[in-house]
């Protein structure tokens, strides 16, 4: 593991609210975590859990009617909340970069790759076009794009989906940022291409000491990639800890439910060769507008009691392993009857 000195990013009780007709809802609710240099943090949750909104909040990309209502975001000790727009622009793409699920959100379809990459460098540094082009070429080579000189002259539509995502990653890496936020960047890609990109991201971040937040709905992707994992549900982080702690000995019933819902985990068929039905989580994710009081998972939880009507505090169950639950599962592997 990398030296755990000062974390690159510290997010403390971050709350992002959206105002609507029926009052405001908290898309991100008192979220706290930190990422160290070279560390990969997996931010896992289902749609509507607030994982992407957490990423957007860190980048200062929350537009009205949304606003960051409380909390702090510190990048290398510098408070980002309330920064003027000009300073945000200097920061984004330079110190913090983002990779989106759809690379066409990053790439301009009518500009050649080199134009876009050189622009990214020269927006933040006083550097000649040729030097910028050389940087762009190196970045493409680093993310495993064959014959980068040719690719520089290509337009985005001339590249395959995997190649486009690699270009988007190369653009994110251009200015050697302190932090990269990746929002489901491999979800739309094939398994073999996803595997290549995961491998490259892992190596690049280790080598350059860039902190990486990997936002995904897929626990399996996180298992092979992240050092630590945060599981989000209805805007709150319900569990966080080392990847092995969270995935092998989950404490929160929601994490357990997610793991049981993943077909790969239940791969062993029974004696008849027919797989058992998946142990599904009953019900469906609540709307943020009608969240139950207290623990938001309470109506779907088998362990819920009256106590769960209050918001459960974050409890450290093992070093670094925190869950927000009054009735956490035992963190030693359970012996199944």
């Amino acid at each position: 593991m990398n030296p755990q000195h000062e974390p690159t990013l510290v997010v403390d009780r971050l709350t992002t609210r959206f105002a609507g007709r029926g009052g405001s809802v908290a898309a991100v609710d008192e979220v706290s975590f930190h990422v160290a240099p070279g560390e990969v943090l997996g931010l896992v949750g289902e749609s509507g859990s607030g994982k992407s909104m957490t990423g957007f909040s860190i980048l200062g990309l929350v537009d009205p009617p949304g606003e960051i209502a409380a909390g702090s975001i510190r990048l290398k000790g510098r408070e980002l909340r309330g920064l003027p727009a000009r300073e945000w622009r200097a920061l984004r793409g330079d110190r913090i970069a983002m990779i989106f699920q759809d690379p066409m959100m990053t790439l301009n379809p009518v500009l050649r790759i080199d134009t876009q990459m050189i622009e990214t460098v020269r927006a933040h540094r006083r550097i000649s076009r040729d030097a910028a082009r050389a940087l762009a070429r190196d970045a493409l080579a680093r993310v495993g794009i064959p014959s980068p000189d040719e690719r520089l002259r290509a337009y985005p539509h001339q590249l395959s989906g995997g190649m486009r995502q690699r270009v988007a990653i190369a653009i994110a890496l251009l200015n050697a940022p302190d932090l990269i936020i990746a929002d489901e960047p491999t979800t739309a890609l094939d398994v073999t291409i996803q595997a290549q990109i995961l491998f490259e991201m892992q190596t690049l971040c280790r080598e350059s000491g860039t902190a990486l937040i990997w936002i995904t709905h897929d626990l399996a992707v996180v298992a092979g990639l992240a050092d630590r994992v945060c599981v989000m549900y209805a805007g709150r982080i319900v569990e966080q800890g080392g990847t092995a702690q969270v995935l092998e000995t989950p404490a929160h019933p929601y994490t357990r439910g997610l793991l049981d819902s993943t077909p790969a985990a239940n791969a062993q068929p029974d004696a008849t060769g027919r797989p058992q039905p998946l142990r599904q989580i009953p019900g469906m994710a609540p709307s943020l507008k009608e969240l139950p009081a207290g623990c938001a998972f309470r109506p779907r939880c088998t362990r819920a009691s009256d106590l769960c009507g209050q918001v459960p505090p974050a409890v450290e169950l093992a070093p670094g392993h925190v869950a927000r639950c009054f009735h956490p599962l035992p963190t030693v592997p359970e012996v199944k009857p």
Binding site: A195, A220, A223, T243
Partner: peptide, 14 residues
């Protein structure tokens, strides 16, 4: 290469 829930630092290179 298919991601699994096994926690191991994989070498994604097949």
């Amino acid at each position: 290469e298919a991601p699994t829930l096994k926690v191991e630092k994989k070498r994604f290179l097949a």
